[in-house]
Design a protein around this nucleic acid. Structure first.
Lengths: 111, 111
DNA sequence: TCTTGACACCTAGAACAACTAGGCATATAT
DNA sequence: ATATATGCCTAGTTGTTCTAGGTGTCAAGA
């Protein structure tokens, strides 16, 4: 038994990160905490998922990064969403809405 | 431009197949048509996604297969959901509900 | 003092799903 | 004749997520 396969994010991670960062400049570690907290612990973003995702989003021009001092007093890399990133977020939110509608259609099919 | 990346299914394919097959015995090719039709063309299940998925589900004991004559008069592989498959479907539907709730929580966060 | 835990960053490699792009074969319609 | 629809299949690529490590700082407690 114990066949748990986490892999819980299902392609939503980029969208979730964009959304969180769109709320205001924030550093990576705090992003994962925020996602976990807002989702009531449903999402637990592993660091091995988080940091590659952030670099991916930065490389695509959807996020900008800058080293600043965190509230803890230590240096951290703060991200903000670019103009391109906001358009991308919009597109992903729209696509997510369509996707979940389509899934709902199928799950509600009775015959 | 033209940066369309399909990969539209986002880990939902197994659940969708289980759901469709749970409605009654049906062969592979028809499953993809059914999914496409019910989802109003949102999902277009490529054959290169469909058949590996069916074999995956069969190997895990969630589907049973049997060659029978299709309405077209030709032989086709008909699938039905096993008892294990129904439990799996239930679990996946529940997980999907939780996932989309969690996503909604994050997308609705205003500050 | 020493060590644990939280913070904060990172990467390499494995696992896996979905895709592209091919293949085979039959039946019907043009 | 040949194109289209049906119906099955696989190999190989791509991309995301995971595990499992690594670095270093700082505060609290044993």
């Amino acid at each position: 038994m114990a066949e748990d396969k986490p892999e819980v994010l299902k392609g939503t991670l980029d969208m979730l990160i964009l959304k969180i960062v769109a709320l205001g400049p924030i550093h990576g570690y705090a992003i994962s905490q925020r996602i976990q907290q807002i989702s009531k612990e449903f999402f637990q973003v592993q660091q091995g998922s988080l940091y590659p995702a952030l670099h991916r989003l930065e490389n695509r021009g959807w996020l900008d990064a800058e080293w600043r001092e965190a509230s803890s007093g230590r240096e951290a890399k703060f991200y903000k969403v670019t103009k391109k990133g906001r358009k991308q977020l919009e597109a992903e939110v729209l696509n997510w809405a369509r996707l979940s509608d389509a899934v709902a259609l199928i799950l509600r099919t009775a015959e």
